[in-house]
Design a protein around this nucleic acid. Structure first.
Length: 298
RNA sequence: GGGCGUGUGGCUGAGCAGCAAAGGCAACAGACUGUAAAUCUGUCGGGGUUUCCCCUUCGUAGGUGCAAGUCCUACCGCGCCCA
């Protein structure tokens, strides 16, 4: 079985069962799991992010969990570096790396080797820019990098600011999107679930997370080292549990909103995934296994 | 029985006599070059030859206006107060 140049990707919307499937496939195919989840990255964010437990992991090595403090902002570029290292490491060991997660951008950074411009976020600069009205920023960008200005979403302050940041630091237009050959072949599996199924799964999962106030306690713990604002930045469970703990919403409202927002999130994920024609959409574990077998034979 | 108030698109909720009718929610679609569970956009009564035209809408029925969701009358439903 030739695995030293291959990568399995398991993706899908939130609550679709990625973790479970990845564990089973890892066991069966001597795989090692690399998380591609922008929240599981952080220490202390376990229940709300749906992180695998030690017990579930068993002997299967996992990477890219708990690699950052939630006090610091983690980014795709950092993710790309560490995750790539993990892939290489597994390859060297003769194992099969399985990239698992729902963060499309993170997956893309590994599976497609997107080249991210080497300009670190300058938070001071961003703070400064945040005070300037958006139309002003857009005008500046149009002068510095007209091509970029035409491409990006001019209504999205976050995008405009980053584009400006690049233009200012680079002193030249942002190069067109580049992809680097990562040197390995991908098999991308997507877990297919209908919106109705997801809705049920999301509700079920939330109930479990809320059991014995486990998730509430988790957020309370995080609050010891994080501001409410930071906590709310994380979105979904973290955002709305934080709002609940601040008495901004009732518990019933919190539950309702988390469900609804998770459904929205699942939809956004699917919008991202839909455009990738390489994804093999599967319904069962058996389908995944068959695809994997074939892939590994080649 | 009397007084006051209210009835708007799937929901919520604005609405000055010139409106297919603000905003919010939901729904549907989409973007994504170091915050990506974040951030942002479009559509959203129906139809068409779709930067414009037509039709049908604001509890029901009449009425007054060139023109009515907006004014008047009656009726029906809902709410509060007095009996």
């Amino acid at each position: 079985m030739e695995t030293d140049s291959k990568l399995i990707v398991i993706l899908g919307p939130t609550a679709s069962g990625k973790t479970g499937l990845s564990l089973k496939l890892a066991k069966k195919f001597h795989g090692e799991i690399i998380s591609a989840d922008s929240r599981q990255i952080y220490k202390g964010m376990d229940i709300g992010s749906g992180k695998v437990t030690k017990k579930e992991m068993g002997k299967i090595p996992h990477y890219l969990l708990d690699v950052a403090s939630p006090r610091q902002r983690f980014t795709v570029a950092q993710y790309q570096k560490i995750a790539l290292k993990a892939v290489r490491h597994i390859h060297q060991k003769g194992g099969l790396p399985i990239l698992v997660g729902g963060t499309g951008f993170y997956i893309q950074s590994i599976a497609d080797g997107v080249v991210i411009p080497e300009v670190k976020p300058d938070w001071k600069l961003r703070q400064k820019l945040a005070k300037i009205p958006l139309p002003e920023l857009v005008k500046q960008l149009q002068m510095l990098d007209p091509a970029r200005a035409g491409i990006i979403d001019q209504n999205n302050p976050r995008r405009v600011v980053r584009a400006l940041e690049l233009a200012l630091k680079l002193g030249s237009p942002v190069p067109a999107l580049q992809q680097r050959d990562m040197g390995f072949k991908n098999l991308i599996l997507g877990i297919k679930k209908s919106p109705k199924e997801l809705k049920i799964l999301i509700a079920k999962r939330l109930k479990i997370r809320l059991k014995n106030d486990a998730m509430i306690k988790e957020v309370k713990n995080l609050r010891k080292i994080l501001s409410w604002k930071r906590l709310e930045e994380f979105g979904l469970e973290y955002r709305y549990v934080a709002q609940y703990l601040q008495n901004k919403i009732t518990k019933e409202e919190m539950i309702k909103i988390i469900k609804k927002e998770s459904e929205h999130y699942a939809k956004r994920q699917m919008t991202w995934f839909k455009r990738d024609q390489r994804i093999h959409w599967i319904k069962t574990q058996k389908q995944a296994e068959n695809l994997l077998k074939n892939f590994l034979k080649k």
